[in-house]
Design a protein around this nucleic acid. Structure first.
Length: 293
DNA sequence: CTCTGTTCCTGGCAGC
DNA sequence: TGCTGCCAGGAACAGA
């Protein structure tokens, strides 16, 4: 989605902003009118991502700011022609004028309203490296500053990741889902990475051998790279790119959502168990539970 | 301090 | 056919 937005928004001026549902601004400090006025007339300078946060920096002569978005479960950022009919679950529309591409609309649509947009200040990154993918600027929105980099980021702090994994008594899957330790991993990619690394999701994190942590991190990277290459994981119309097209990674899932179906490695039926109000899917034979618990 | 459970929301679906 | 209830998920937050 970031890659799709970048060429369309970079250098574009905001012509108008329409907030149709205030719940789309739950991350925004201030009223919808403030969101609209902070953006209208400004030029956007790119599209940047860290983990599951996405932001569009705003060209200003004052303090650095950006439109920050988190898609939650069902959020979408779609590129549409100006004046295009309202999308189902449309919450915010930003009309843009691009010097080369002409006029277009960025539409934020979100069925379950876990996602939201905000205007946020940009602050320097702690490590001095670029804030995220899509920019060389060492700035990050306040809202995303506490989030770790994702493991594909060249500045990902692998030593910190290893320390956190080695220190925690929690289930390793919970550590993978903790965005302050490593970002970009949700329930689906956690299950897929654990299956690929042959690690039981409830293994106490600190009980993992060093070589197992290495293998797990390697597999996380393989899963994320492949998911990005295939445009994400689409189960339904909610998971789409900026043109509303579905990603293909759902066809590559080995464990997630495959309850009762044979493990692609050994044929044992995949198990589904309840885990922190979610579900874990894993192979009971390939992913043996290790360590005291 | 670390860790865990709850909460927000909507639409698709199973079951009656 | 139409109703009810369950489920999916990310992250902030409260509380242990």
């Amino acid at each position: 989605m970031r890659a799709g937005l970048a060429p369309a928004v970079t250098g574009a001026r905001v012509v108008s902003v329409t907030v149709l549902d205030d719940r789309a601004l739950t991350r925004h400090r201030g009223a919808a009118s403030d969101f609209e006025s902070a953006l209208t007339g400004r030029v956007l300078t790119g599209a940047v991502r860290r983990g599951k946060f996405l932001w569009l920096p705003i060209e200003t002569d004052a303090a650095a700011r950006a439109v920050v978005g988190h898609l939650g479960m069902s959020g979408q950022l779609l590129l549409r022609a100006p004046g295009a009919p309202a999308e189902r679950h449309e919450r915010v529309r930003i009309e843009l004028a691009h010097p080369r591409h002409g006029e277009l609309a960025v539409v934020f649509a979100d069925q379950r309203t876990f996602g939201s947009l905000a205007i946020d200040d940009l602050v320097p990154t702690i490590d001095g490296a670029a804030g995220g993918f899509g920019s060389d600027v060492a700035l990050v929105p306040v809202q995303a500053a506490h989030i770790a980099r994702d493991p594909l980021d060249p500045a990902f702090d692998e030593a910190l990741f290893r320390r956190r994994v080695g220190a925690s008594a929690s289930a390793v899957k919970r550590v993978l889902l903790d965005q302050t330790t490593v970002s970009g991993i949700g329930n689906i990619y956690a299950d897929e990475s654990l299956w690929a690394a042959r690690v039981h999701p409830e293994t106490p994190s600190r009980a993992l051998a060093t070589r197992t942590v290495t293998r797990l991190l390697d597999e996380v990277r393989v899963v994320l790279e492949r998911a990005l290459a295939e445009g994400g994981t689409s189960f339904d119309a909610q998971y789409v790119n900026v043109n509303g097209q579905a990603g293909y990674f759902a066809h590559s899932l080995r464990a997630y959502g495959r309850t009762g179906q044979p493990c692609p490695r050994c044929g044992t039926p995949i198990l589904r168990v309840s885990f922190t109000n979610r579900s874990s899917h894993f192979c009971p034979r390939c992913q043996r539970r290790r360590g005291a618990r």
